[in-house]
């Protein structure tokens, strides 16, 4: 440890880029990224459950609008969605003086809106796929034991669908983490924004971006590991004994 420190110390003291100041910048970026991604994912997840149930239903007035919502949000770049949320409200006359002023004064809110709806669309499709893959026998068994359609859905279909959806949802979470990098395009200082700031200030792209790339990678691996653990726990019943 001692030896390691004596080797690292001169590097830290010699380098002009990773000063306490810039490290604080990166830290703020990390906090912003994690907050943005976490809140969007949680809210998106809660929206996706009813949306998936509606999309899986046979009622046309219910599943067609949800299909359209998903189609548009999955078919266009998140950046466009972000710009629409960001500029769309800012340029409405009178917003500045209304109760919604907070929404345009901090770009985090439009970003949250766009990210949440986007992840809700993707998550809905993941869930729908999982719901449709429910083995017919499981549903029949539930009905045979006298469960109502709603109870069978709540007690049998959804729990088993959520488990099946876990691997794909894990990918969506990492996808969202990476996609959140565009928050820097609407002046939010997230991780990527911090890296850009450091790059612009020192005109040294390699340390600035490689460092932030490592941070993203670390976050991705932690998330991946977390989902692996969750999968082995929740999908235990699918593994051969």
């Amino acid at each position: 440890m001692e030896q390691w420190l004596t080797q690292v110390a001169p590097f830290l003291s010699d380098n002009l880029i990773f000063t306490p100041n810039t490290l604080a910048q990166y830290w703020d970026g990390l906090v912003n990224t994690v907050q943005l991604v976490f809140i969007s994912l949680v809210v998106g997840l809660f929206l996706a459950v009813p949306l998936a149930v509606g999309r899986a239903s046979r009622r046309v007035w219910l599943n067609v609008p949800i299909w359209l919502f998903n189609y548009v949000f999955r078919g266009t770049p998140l950046l466009i969605q972000l710009y629409i949320a960001y500029y769309g409200f800012a340029f409405i006359d009178g917003v500045q003086d209304s109760a919604f002023a907070f929404f345009i004064n901090d770009p985090v809110y439009p970003a949250l809106l766009a990210f949440t709806l986007n992840t809700a669309a993707y998550t809905t499709e993941i869930f729908v796929g999982a719901i449709r893959a429910t083995p017919q026998g499981e549903l029949e068994a539930a009905r045979a034991y006298g469960m109502s359609a709603a109870t069978a859905y709540r007690r049998v279909v959804l729990p088993s669908a959520f488990r099946r959806a876990l691997p794909a949802y894990g990918n969506e979470v990492i996808f969202m983490l990476h996609a959140s990098a565009i928050a820097s395009a609407v002046t939010i200082t997230d991780l990527t924004g911090a890296a850009y700031y450091v790059y612009a200030r020192f005109y040294s792209p390699f340390p600035a971006f490689i460092f932030v790339a490592l941070v993203y990678m670390l976050l991705s691996f932690v998330l991946q590991g977390g989902f692996k653990v969750l999968e082995t726990r929740m999908l235990r019943h699918l593994k051969p004994a």
């Binding site: 990476h178 790059y199 792209p205 991705s220």
Partner: peptide, 14 residues
């Protein structure tokens, strides 16, 4: 493991 945008900035500016 790395966002597209970060990769793009690294390759473009770098």
């Amino acid at each position: 493991g790395v966002p597209d945008l970060v990769m793009m900035m690294l390759l473009f500016y770098g």
